[in-house]
Computed example of a mutant assay.
Amino acid sequence: MNRLEERNRKFLTYWKKRREHKRKYVALAGVWPLFIAILAYLWTIDLKLPDIDVVQFGLQIIVYTSVGVWYGLWSYKKHEKMYQELLAAKDTEQA
């Protein structure tokens, strides 16, 4: 078995488990931008907590979370497409 086949087999095993929980996969992708938004905002106000502008902070969280969810959906679709292609190739190889 060559290296590419081993990698594809590992991917099939990995994605078979992950694909069952689409919402969880997308939500996890949408959560990490929240941490980035908080850190970025705190950096822009030089860590002075009384200077927090709630509207700007809320807008930043909405934007970062939207990008995270979009990335999660895009990533899910990309992985699902690859999974289906590998399954089809595996089925034709076995036949």
Rank of each mutant, 00 (worst) to 15 (best):
V69S: 14
K77A: 13
Y64R: 02
Q56V: 00
A89N: 14
N2E: 14
Q84S: 03
K22P: 05
W32Y: 12
G30T: 09
L59D: 00
I52G: 01
N2W: 13
M82Q: 15
A27R: 12
P50L: 01
Y64Q: 04
D53Y: 09
D53C: 03
F35H: 05
D91G: 00
A89S: 15
W32A: 06
W43R: 08
V31W: 11
E20R: 12
R3P: 00
D91L: 15
N2V: 02
K48I: 02
E6N: 12
A29R: 15
E5P: 06
Y83M: 01
G68I: 02
W43Y: 09
G68Y: 05
Y71Q: 12
V63N: 13
F11A: 04
I52L: 01
L73Y: 15
R9I: 01
Q84H: 04
V63W: 13
L39D: 08
K81Q: 08
A29T: 14
H79V: 07
L12F: 05
K48M: 09
I36A: 10
A27H: 12
L59I: 06
Y64T: 05
I61L: 08
R7D: 03
P50G: 07
I38R: 01
A89W: 10
S66D: 06
K16T: 11
I62Q: 10
D91H: 14
I36D: 03
Y25P: 07
Y71G: 02
L86A: 02
A37F: 05
L34F: 12
Q56N: 06
T92E: 10
W74V: 03
E6Y: 13
E80M: 01
W43L: 12
W15I: 08
P33I: 05
E20A: 13
D53N: 11
A95M: 11
Y64G: 02
N2A: 12
M1T: 15
I45F: 01
K78R: 11
Q56L: 02
G68M: 05
E85C: 04
P50W: 10
F35S: 04
E85D: 11
Y76M: 02
H79D: 14
K22G: 06
P50A: 08
D91M: 11
E6W: 09
